[in-house]
Design a protein around this nucleic acid. Structure first.
Lengths: 215, 215
DNA sequence: TAGATTGTTAATCGATTAACAATC
DNA sequence: TAGATTGTTAATCGATTAACAATC
């Protein structure tokens, strides 16, 4: 049975909590206690972990380290991923500088940008190349993942090009929905939408919600 | 009846599509055509729009401009929001530079950082101040929204402080789940989790999905 | 009027929660 | 063994889709 979409989005959250627990020296955790920390029900924890072939023991709980390794493998964090970033603007610059990606096996090898003034320069130690070099770079460096940190107007055309050159996954920061073949892994971060959702919550805060519970 | 969580997250998407259509001179749209563009069912479009008191006409469809204005009001995009950013690092720097926020009424007034070397400097024309100035700045400038672009270790403490000083909404980029009073609007952007989800999809691409449809 | 398309109710689907027997 | 906790089936809940009468 395949892993449901809802569970896929919780997997990185489990990973994060388990990592913190391992760091704190916790070796065993029950669905009840893990659910309490993550603010979900123990039932959901057990259903989730079972859906990806988890490894619990009755009367004991789940071994933190083994579960962490297991989820890491499912997420592909046990291998290295070669990344390029398209666009040396604000977002592109922020992402190269982000240390935590590399610790999970995501290594950025180059940034590509249209602006000739940037070519030969670096951002956080990663070189910036002209767009024309993308094709050869992908081949030579076995790049699987491309980050789109460019304006929405250019994004679809660039995405099509990247796929033609062999890119297998696109992490999109442009404010549009790309049309891609279903054989390409695709994930977007829509910052404007996230901020607008926050704005909605701010505006409608008092309507439902008079209680004092934490969220 | 209140707007469901699923709909809340689709509202900014409707807004984006409608904005594009208006720019293209489209004045009217049917649920069928809007659903086709957004890749959801016409039924869902109608249910969604009805749930927030939409304004369709039988036999005609939805007036693009009116619907856009209506959704904009629900999202709070018809007013100005004062923002401060905590943390002048990569993420903070990327967000100040992001032009599109301001066009929706989100105005960043200041950045705060611990590093004394940055005080008095600017990022994209926005001044960087010491953390000690936060309290007075929030009061004086009627700041509602704070962006947390700081390491996870410091985030909870800073969030608590911001709330004490009157912040009403927190946009969190730190890699943790904050514990906040339910009276505070809260939205996180978890970049690492998004990248890990992409990695999962990349790894498991061929398992379910042999078709050629676009996604 | 006829055709198109909404608003809304009913049916379906999927995800979450509850319950409990199995078992460490 | 007794207690704890999983694995798993059943019940519930909510969201999506389908259907169709209302109406522009």
């Amino acid at each position: 049975m395949s892993i449901s979409d809802a569970v896929i989005h919780r997997l990185p959250v489990y990973y994060r909590y388990l990592k913190d627990m391992e760091k704190d020296g916790i070796v065993q955790i029950s669905s009840h206690e893990l659910g309490r920390r993550m603010n979900i029900t123990p039932s959901q924890v057990r259903q989730d972990i079972n859906s990806f072939g988890g490894i619990g023991r009755q009367g004991y709980g789940y071994p933190v380290h083994e579960l962490l390794i297991h989820i890491g493998k499912i997420l592909g964090l046990d291998r290295n991923h070669n990344i390029i970033i398209i666009g040396a603007g604000n977002i592109g610059g922020a992402l190269v500088g982000h240390k935590s990606f590399e610790s999970n096996g995501f290594k950025t090898h180059a940034i590509f940008d249209n602006d000739p003034k940037l070519h030969g320069k670096e951002l956080s130690g990663i070189p910036i190349y002209p767009m024309d070099d993308i094709k050869n770079f992908i081949k030579k460096n076995k790049v699987e993942i491309a980050v789109l940190a460019i304006p929405a107007e250019a994004a679809q055309k660039i995405a099509d090009m990247l796929i033609k050159y062999g890119i297998k996954a696109i992490w999109n920061f442009a404010s549009l929905d790309l049309k891609l073949p279903s054989s390409i892994a695709y994930q977007s971060v829509h910052l404007s939408e996230s901020l607008q959702t926050l704005s909605f919550k701010l505006l409608h805060m008092n309507e439902n919600n008079e209680s004092n519970e934490k969220h």
